Simulated assay, not measured.
Amino acid sequence: MTGSTDWLAALRAYLLTVAAGALVWEAAHLPLYTLWRTGTTGEKLFAVVHCTLGDLLIALTSLALGLVLAGRRDWPVRRSGAVGAITVVFGLGYTVFSEWLNIVVRESWAYSDLMPVVPVLGFDLGVSPLLQWVVVPTLALHVARRAGTPRQTPTPEAVE
């Protein structure tokens, strides 16, 4: 009555969900950055695509680290909670670093007055990027777990 775990289907589902979620999130929170007022349409489009692809790489790397540190051969059926927690923590950690690097050090982007911020490690960090790295990977990991969980196939005896 049991099938085998399909980790490849889970990985595909995770990546597709992250890509779709990141694209929507990046487009939706663009007004929270000064680029919304100062950028051309092409610059805004480039930012959304560039950031979405970056998010996909961060999400894949974070999941890989989670799998290496806590995964099992039968992931996502087993150890999905531990892998998920590590994935989200790495994603959040990288986000804090990236926001600090690009806002404080490089000054390559800035928040608009609309961005809610929280003080983190001596600088104001946007709430939207933090929420993104909790909501999108958590949703993607849930979808991945469902995609990778074996389907219960009835035995011949159960069909009769």
Score class of each variant (00 low, 15 high):
residue 138 T to L: 08
residue 121 L to V: 09
residue 58 I to Y: 09
residue 149 T to E: 13
residue 65 L to F: 09
residue 68 V to F: 13
residue 112 S to T: 01
residue 20 A to Q: 02
residue 76 P to N: 01
residue 37 R to N: 15
residue 88 V to G: 06
residue 122 G to Y: 10
residue 151 R to M: 14
residue 122 G to H: 07
residue 74 D to C: 00
residue 159 V to I: 14
residue 95 T to D: 12
residue 22 A to R: 04
residue 85 A to R: 10
residue 42 G to N: 13
residue 135 V to H: 07
residue 39 G to R: 01
residue 114 L to K: 04
residue 101 L to E: 15
residue 5 T to S: 15
residue 134 V to H: 01
residue 146 R to T: 12
residue 89 V to W: 13
residue 31 P to H: 04
residue 10 A to P: 02
residue 89 V to S: 02
residue 99 E to T: 13
residue 60 L to V: 15
residue 71 G to Y: 00
residue 131 L to Y: 01
residue 73 R to H: 09
residue 101 L to I: 14
residue 153 T to P: 10
residue 101 L to M: 12
residue 129 P to T: 05
residue 49 V to P: 01
residue 69 L to T: 10
residue 6 D to A: 06
residue 87 T to E: 07
residue 119 P to F: 10
residue 146 R to N: 07
residue 31 P to S: 02
residue 5 T to F: 08
residue 106 R to P: 00
residue 11 L to P: 01
residue 31 P to W: 02
residue 143 V to H: 07
residue 122 G to S: 05
residue 136 V to K: 05
residue 77 V to P: 00
residue 157 E to T: 07
residue 122 G to P: 04
residue 148 G to S: 06
residue 147 A to L: 11
residue 30 L to R: 03
residue 118 V to K: 06
residue 100 W to R: 07
residue 137 P to A: 08
residue 143 V to G: 06
residue 66 G to M: 05
residue 72 R to V: 03
residue 156 P to Y: 07
residue 7 W to H: 09
residue 60 L to D: 12
residue 7 W to P: 14
residue 1 M to Y: 13
residue 145 R to H: 10
residue 6 D to W: 00
residue 7 W to E: 06
residue 129 P to E: 06
residue 4 S to R: 15
residue 134 V to Q: 05
residue 118 V to R: 04
residue 96 V to M: 07
residue 105 V to Y: 03
residue 43 E to T: 04
residue 54 G to I: 00
residue 145 R to P: 06
residue 146 R to E: 13
residue 51 C to W: 11
residue 37 R to A: 15
residue 77 V to Q: 13
residue 6 D to I: 01
residue 18 V to P: 00
residue 99 E to R: 03
residue 127 V to S: 05
residue 145 R to N: 10
residue 96 V to R: 03
residue 58 I to G: 07
residue 127 V to I: 15
residue 9 A to M: 02
residue 113 D to C: 04
residue 95 T to R: 04
residue 2 T to R: 14
residue 6 D to V: 00
residue 44 K to F: 01
residue 36 W to R: 07
